[in-house]
Simulated scan of single mutants.
Amino acid sequence: MIFDDRICALGEGPLWHPLRQQLFWFDIIGQRLLTRIGDGPEEWHFTEMVSAAGWITRDELLIASETALFRFNLETGVQTHLIALEADNPKTRSNDGRSDPQGGFWIGTMGKVEGPGTPAMGAIYRYYRGELRKLFAPIAIPNSISFPPGGQSACFTDTVTGRVLRVTLDADGWPKGQPETFLDLTALGLHPDGAVFDADGIFWGAQWGASRVAAYAPDGTFLRAVPFDAPHTSCPAFGGDTLYCTTALHNMDAAARAKHPNAGKTFMAKGIAQGQPEHQVTL
């Protein structure tokens, strides 16, 4: 089912705000944040690409852009700079991000020209109580930043590798030890994109080019897939038991766009699983 029919060149970063009971998401290339209030669409436009967010209060989001993390007031539109994010590198931008159970915010960066061996590679960072620390690098296309219940581990991927990794976290939410493979999708030719864990610890991952979000048990066993009518599913989010998913037109030629007229729209599927409440960012 289509949740919103506005077409995003590169839909990403869906966030279900637990206080507002409202979905927010991004069109990275279109430099905009989108939502719906009741039956009506609403959006905000920015001067550079924006890609992911966490909620701070009912009215404020933390937003990741090409060059910074900033606070954004949904009622007034006021932006407040928090910290630079690879601001000295015009070849990179932010991509996938999500808040962790300890109140930190993880954010990945990548080259504006995608893929391995490109002029710019990215990294995965964590912002926590005023500190931005680089966690993992180099990363070509950071995705699947997600946290199972309990706050003891985190998952992430470099999409081009086809593997989702899992790393143990300490009490403050910082990684300890080396990441290990949680899912290896290389033999299937699948490309892991954005992901989220539900309240039962099931991993739900969008798979770029596969028109679906797939569910995996804590031991990595495939459970089921939810199909959506767009090839490039980019990131899921849960609002209660409803699964939302952003999609993209990115890298589709005219023939592919004609074949898939719903590509780039944002989808929903009701009664899928019970999501975790999205974690609040602690500044």
Rank of each mutant, 00 (worst) to 15 (best):
D4E: 07
C8A: 10
H17V: 11
Q22N: 14
W25D: 01
Q31G: 00
R36N: 05
G40V: 00
E42W: 09
S51I: 08
A53D: 03
W55M: 09
D59I: 04
E60I: 11
L61R: 14
A84W: 01
A87K: 08
P90G: 07
F105T: 06
W106F: 06
W106C: 03
M110I: 08
E114A: 12
G115V: 12
R133P: 00
A140Y: 12
I141H: 08
P148T: 05
P148D: 09
G150F: 09
G151T: 12
G162N: 01
G162H: 02
R163G: 02
V167C: 14
G173W: 04
P179F: 12
D184P: 01
G189E: 05
P192F: 12
P192S: 10
A195M: 13
F197Q: 07
D200N: 14
W204N: 12
A206E: 13
Q207E: 15
G209Q: 04
A210V: 06
D219S: 15
D219T: 14
T221Y: 04
V226W: 10
P227E: 08
T233K: 08
T233I: 15
A237K: 02
D241Q: 09
N251H: 15
R257G: 06
N262D: 07
G264L: 05
K265Y: 06
Q276H: 03
E278K: 03
E278I: 02
H279V: 07
